[in-house]
Design a protein around this nucleic acid. Structure first.
Lengths: 110, 110
DNA sequence: TGGTAATTTGGCTGAATTGCCAATAATTGC
DNA sequence: GCAATTATTGGCAATTCAGCCAAATTACCA
């Protein structure tokens, strides 16, 4: 692989990784609607606060969310509009996949 | 968490996971330009053929790529236009991140 | 200054992922 | 049919990731 490619390849996936987790997608969807603090999200999800905090940290480092302190409370908010555009795009892929599955199923039946 | 949310959350991340890997992003970028067989990609990347084959299998299951057999050779091709739109969107996030880093760096300096 | 609430960090264990090798399959041409 | 080529699958060791608990940090308030 060319060095230029190698560099390209190394720098990009961290943003995708930051999204590629069920809880993190859920959190993104919630934050898209309005900002939430860590304990609110932990409450919604039913996981340990420290777990949620770590997930938020991953997404913050990836530049997907931002945070604001108010006293001891930290409010996280959505920071990347294009992500939601993409998530809705993913829906389309899923629909296509389902169509394809049905098609191949129909084919094997005949 | 509501059941409807739980379901939502479980079904989506597999497509993101299928992209969230350096080699897989590299492969997607290559396939975006033109179809390639497994051994061509393995050659470009310098990894074992079986490794590449498994990566392609993950992406195929996610509906990101498709394959066509020609003799013993399997050509993989791009199947999801919106992904590249998104990858270019990721570039923007990266640029924003860099800007932010520089800004915070400048702030700490003053 | 001491106590309290919200969050982050460290540490640990179990689970998942990766990548190589070897073995197996599938297809072509002799 | 048999060797050769291409790809897939199984198995294994190494690495990374997730999630929980406990400890540390931060900010507020009396």
């Amino acid at each position: 692989m060319h060095d230029s490619n190698r560099k390209h390849v190394k720098t990009r996936p961290y943003i995708l990784k930051a999204m590629a987790h069920p809880l993190r997608l859920f959190i993104l969807a919630k934050l898209f609607k309005k900002p939430h603090c860590v304990c609110e999200l932990a409450e919604m999800i039913g996981a340990d606060i420290s777990t949620i905090s770590k997930h938020l940290s991953v997404m913050k480092n990836a530049g997907l969310v931002g945070d604001t302190k108010e006293g001891t409370t930290v409010y996280y908010s959505f920071q990347c509009d294009c992500v939601m555009t993409f998530i809705s795009c993913i829906e389309n892929v899923i629909i296509e996949n389902i169509k394809r599955d049905k098609l191949s199923l129909a084919k094997t039946r005949t």
